[in-house]
Design a protein around this nucleic acid. Structure first.
Length: 139
DNA sequence: GCCAACGTTGGC
DNA sequence: GCCAACGTTGGC
C-alpha cells in the first residue's frame, strides 16, 4: 500500500463535503498538472491519502481512501488527465498544520513542503506513521 | 528546440 | 495584496 496527500481549497471542496458525500465516493477531479497526474496513476485501490486544506487552515484534516483507480477525467476535453474516486475514512483528532510539518525534522523534506503547488503528492511510509501519530489516528 | 513572458497556485 | 515557484505558451 502506498500513501498520498491530496490538497484542496476548502472553498471549492472541503473535508466536510467529502464526509457528507459518504461511502459512495466522489471523484477527485480537475487535476491539470503532469506531476500530480503521475501520482494519481500510481494510486491503487485501498491506498490511503491525507486530506489537506490549502489556503484556509493549511492543515491535514482527515484521511481518505482510494476506491477507484485512475480513469479519464470527464472534465478534461482533451482526455489527457485522469481522476480517482475517494471516500472519507476518518477525521483526524488533532489537525497537523503546515507550520508544524515544517517544524518537524522528520517531515520537513515532504513533497508538500518542497513543492507547495502540487495538488497530489506522495507520502513515505515513515512520514505517514509520523503524521498519524501526531494526528492521533491509528496508522 | 530554446527561452522570455505570462498565468496560476499557495504561503505569508 | 504581494511574491516566489513552477508550468505553459508563443516568438524566433
Amino acid at each position: 500500500m502506498s500513501y498520498l496527500l491530496v490538497k484542496s481549497e476548502p472553498g471549492s471542496w472541503s473535508w466536510d463535503q467529502q464526509v457528507a458525500a459518504g461511502a459512495k465516493g466522489t471523484a477527485w477531479t480537475g487535476v491539470r498538472n503532469h506531476t500530480a497526474k503521475q501520482n494519481l496513476m500510481k494510486m491503487k485501490k485501498g491506498d490511503r491519502a491525507f486530506f489537506y486544506h490549502s489556503g484556509e487552515g493549511k492543515e491535514i484534516v482527515g484521511v481518505a481512501e482510494i476506491v477507484k483507480e485512475a480513469y479519464p477525467d470527464p472534465s478534461d476535453a482533451e482526455g489527457k488527465f485522469v481522476q480517482v474516486d475517494v471516500i472519507p475514512v476518518e477525521p483526524v483528532k488533532t489537525p497537523v498544520t503546515l507550520a508544524t510539518i515544517k517544524g518537524t525534522p522528520a517531515l520537513k523534506s515532504m513533497k508538500l513542503v518542497k513543492l507547495s503547488r502540487l495538488s497530489v503528492s506522495p507520502v513515505s511510509a515513515d512520514e505517514w506513521r509520523t503524521i498519524a501519530k501526531m494526528t492521533g489516528i491509528k496508522a
